[in-house]
Structure formats: structure tokens, C-alpha cells
Design a protein around this nucleic acid. Structure first.
Length: 268
DNA sequence: ATGGTGGTCCTACCA
């Protein structure tokens, strides 16, 4: 099973790009974040034409929004609200693959604003509260849950030193502060998730999945961050075959500021 | 040096 996660930054604006990506990489499952599309305006027909028999969405007007599209049957869907908000930041689905049921969680974690101080910045507080709630949710699930789980999405945190272009210069910048990193790793550990990207590629090289729009030449300056993640439950580890970050897509025409990440799982 | 750019949707908000 091949799964792609991508912060598309508007599904309607980048329909042709997503078609190109699906054609090139042939994913079985596609998880999108920041679809920025109300549910009644989602381009279902175009996703069907790409070969996805099922597309489940949780969208809203203007911001946020997540979706899971699959060429394999989806049996059930859940949309969880965090922090008592209806802000379309999570959707999950069971996907049937070769007689196995895979649970896919797709997250769009709040970005958190600019000031890394919960007292003056309520967006930063929201981000930390969101992570805490996610941690608690998976802690409760851990004891009894036997699912094969893939958790993906734009988690808006670059947890390791080589997940940013300069650890020293970004340690007080939202997305790489110690308090966020601690919260993210606690969330990850709540279900003993494995960071599939680092498992495959190791911890000793810089890896980015996002480059700001606000630079003249993203490639030349290469000031990226690894904000997008693929985590797998321990039971899936024997099935993990490969992970790739498709950097070159940042250089395509009218790009998202994030690039797709691909994971290959052998479920035969 | 406190910008810069790019989304949605109409004026400001979000990243």
C-alpha cells in the first residue's frame, strides 16, 4: 500500500497539481491538509476520475480542512473535534488492504502564530492544548487498541535538530521551540508511534518538507523545516518498506509551500 | 533589516 500525505494549500487551486502527483506516484491512499474548501464545493468527481473509489472529507470555509482519498475500500470514518472547535483538523478512516484493516489518521495541527508565549498568544496556547488532547486521546486508546495505524499530516513542528535549517536560529521560533517539541514527542509516545521518515532516513542528515513562500529562491537559500510527518504503530514496522520526501515538487509551477511525503507498506 | 509571498474571500485573516 502506497500512501501520500500532502499539505496542498487549497485543493481547488491545485487540482491539476494533485492529478499530476497521483499520475506520477500512483498512491493507493492520499491524505491532504489545508484543503481550504467547504464540503459542498469539494471536487469529488475529479478525485473519482483519478481512481479514488472513496473520498472522505472534513472541510470548512476559508481555512484548514483535511481529506482521505482511497483506491481501496474505506469502511468507516471518524472526524474528531479538538479543543471543542469545529475547525476541521482531523479525519480518520479504516482502509481494507489485502485482508487487513489499516487505520489512517490525518492531522492538521494548529500553526500557533508567531509569539511562542501562551500568555500573549492564544494561537500558541491552542497549539499546545491540541497536542495535549491528542496525547490523551491516544493514551486512552493504547491499552486495548490492536489496530495497524498510520498517523500522518502537517503537525507544524520540526522536532529534531536536523529537521530545520538552523537549530540555533530557530530554537525560539514557533515550530521548533522546546515546549512544542516536548508536547509533540509526548503525543508520539502516547501510542509508541515510530517516526517512519527518520526510521528510514536516519537522524544524521537534514530533512525538510516545507519551504516558506517568503523567500526569493527557496532552493538556493534552502531554509526548510520538516513539519510534515508519517508515524506508524509498532505492529506496522515489519511492513515498512520505504519513505520519500518529494522535494522537487516545491519547484513545480504554483507550488504549495509543503511537499508530498510517500510511504510504502508491504501488506502481502 | 521586521520585510518578504500566497491562500480564501472582500476586508481581514490565516499560514
Amino acid at each position: 500500500m502506497r500512501l501520500i500525505t500532502w499539505n496542498i494549500n487549497s485543493v481547488r487551486l491545485r487540482l491539476n497539481t494533485v492529478k499530476r502527483i497521483v499520475k506520477k506516484f500512483q498512491p493507493d491512499v492520499l491524505c491532504l491538509q489545508e484543503t481550504k474548501c467547504p464540503d459542498d464545493q469539494f471536487p469529488f468527481k475529479e478525485f473519482e476520475d483519478m481512481g479514488f473509489v472513496s473520498t472522505k472529507i472534513y472541510g470548512m470555509k476559508g481555512y484548514n480542512g483535511v481529506s482521505i482519498s482511497s483506491k481501496l475500500p474505506i469502511t468507516s470514518t471518524e472526524k474528531k473535534k479538538f479543543c471543542r472547535k469545529n475547525d476541521a483538523r482531523h479525519i480518520s478512516a479504516y482502509i481494507n488492504c489485502k485482508g487487513r484493516k489499516i487505520k489512517v489518521h490525518n492531522f492538521y495541527v494548529p500553526a500557533g502564530g508567531d509569539e511562542p508565549d501562551t500568555k500573549v498568544n492564544k494561537k500558541f496556547k491552542h497549539k499546545l492544548d491540541f497536542l495535549k488532547e491528542a496525547e490523551n486521546w491516544f493514551t486512552k486508546k493504547r491499552a486495548k487498541n490492536k489496530d495497524l495505524i498510520v498517523l500522518v499530516g502537517d503537525l507544524n513542528i520540526a522536532p529534531h535538530e536536523l529537521d530545520v535549517w538552523s537549530h540555533k536560529q530557530l530554537r525560539n521560533i514557533v515550530s521548533h521551540t522546546q515546549i512544542e517539541i516536548d508536547k509533540l514527542l509526548k503525543f508520539q509516545n502516547s501510542f509508541k508511534f515510530i517516526d517512519a521518515v527518520r526510521f528510514i532516513h536516519g537522524y544524521d542528515k537534514k530533512l525538510y518538507s516545507w519551504w516558506s513562500y517568503r523567500s526569493k529562491d527557496w532552493k538556493k537559500s534552502n531554509r526548510g523545516r520538516r513539519l510534515d510527518h508519517i508515524w506508524i504503530s509498532k505492529k506496522l514496522l515489519p511492513h515498512l518498506k520505504d519513505v520519500s520526501i518529494e522535494e522537487e515538487i516545491r519547484g513545480w509551477k504554483r507550488p504549495s509551500d509543503h511537499v508530498p511525503i510517500i510511504v510504502d507498506l508491504d501488506l502481502s
